[in-house]
Nucleic acid binder design. Sequence first.
DNA 1: ATATATACATACATGAATGTTTGTATCTTT
DNA 2: AAAGATACAAACATTCATGTATGTATATAT
Lengths: 213, 213
Amino acid sequence: MARKTKEEAQETRESILDAAISSFYDNGVSLTSLDQIARQAGVTRGAVYWHFKNKLDIFDALHERLHQSFIDILAPRLGHVEDDPLAQLHRLHTDLMQEVHQNEIKKRTLSVFLLRCDYSGDMQDFLKKQEQSKLKAFQIFVDFFRKAQDQGLLPAQHAPETVARTCHCFMSGLLYEYLRFTGAIDFAAHVQPSIDFFYSSLTVFKQSIKGEN
Amino acid sequence: MARKTKEEAQETRESILDAAISSFYDNGVSLTSLDQIARQAGVTRGAVYWHFKNKLDIFDALHERLHQSFIDILAPRLGHVEDDPLAQLHRLHTDLMQEVHQNEIKKRTLSVFLLRCDYSGDMQDFLKKQEQSKLKAFQIFVDFFRKAQDQGLLPAQHAPETVARTCHCFMSGLLYEYLRFTGAIDFAAHVQPSIDFFYSSLTVFKQSIKGEN
DNA sequence: ATATATACATACATGAATGTTTGTATCTTT
DNA sequence: AAAGATACAAACATTCATGTATGTATATAT
């Protein structure tokens, strides 16, 4: 009853990762034992240790999946600058939050990384990796604002890094809020108006181009 | 060598809490054993179990300390509305971030609650309590904006809850960013400009009062 | 002054998770 | 088709944290 096909083995690997997300979400990363993950995936710890070095290695693989899917959404939508860059960002932000709101798996995965884990000890090294990943995403935003400024669509009085960081912080802050108080916070009544207000107030940034030029 | 004064006992209790912060910060909440905390505090687990029911009970006490000190800063500074409410908020936000930047203990405590713990299992019930605490702080912001609107210092086109949530999300997002990438993110070069930009763009919100009235 | 409650330290019993090792069936390679 | 590599399962040894129970010195109440 051992030695499956390469494809079958790959399936086991994926099912272990899926089981890990689900277990991590229910019990938190550090309180989840490898045995729980294994049983959830319908295998034994032997299979887990065959595919992964340890729990951190699993966590790493999960992060890889998440980050890649995030970049895949971000890159094409910020690769070009439309006539109204702020409206473009506004739509992107709305879509991203709605995606999280509707896609239960993504919600759980994000929840695991942001609320159900414990970045200390071995995990602390992991923050370095996350920093690198986040830097890539951040750079996409910076490039976007820089291009928009170069094309005269946004005023140049603020450094693109500053604008990007501000947007990014608001986005992640809202995401944290949504995940942390899921259930108590309503999308249409709380999340959407906040996004709308943020981007409408950012419009001053755009408006000032007229007073300047 | 037992049975200390009530005051001495209180000191032991405090030293256990201090040790807990330090241990939680270094090793994360769930990976910290009560023995580590005890030894760090210079006592045995006996003392810990005397003062606290379990690790969650310690965590609860720590949260009480943090939340109280936060409210103590917030309440007086948002209790009254000055001539320029946005500038008032701007200063408060700057001061809060600088306090975290300079006060190592507060930085560590916040870091524990936001990054070094694992809100699942038993801890999940704890999110409910945090929700209540955060609601109080949030209410202070809402009241502030409502009063400012009533006094005609800010336009009434946006619900005070929406404005408050937006500010709050940006603040917490920036805090997360700062704590998560501490060292890689510089206060003067990254944090301060982002705060400044956020409040300068919020000014449209205030400006529009002229076009409206 | 005595009794009792307090503030711990020490010792014990239990359980559970980890990493490793060994066994083995079957896929793959040649 | 034989040999080796692969993909696990099962068993083992070790470590370690937790909760509780017990012991005890001393502060405090009466």
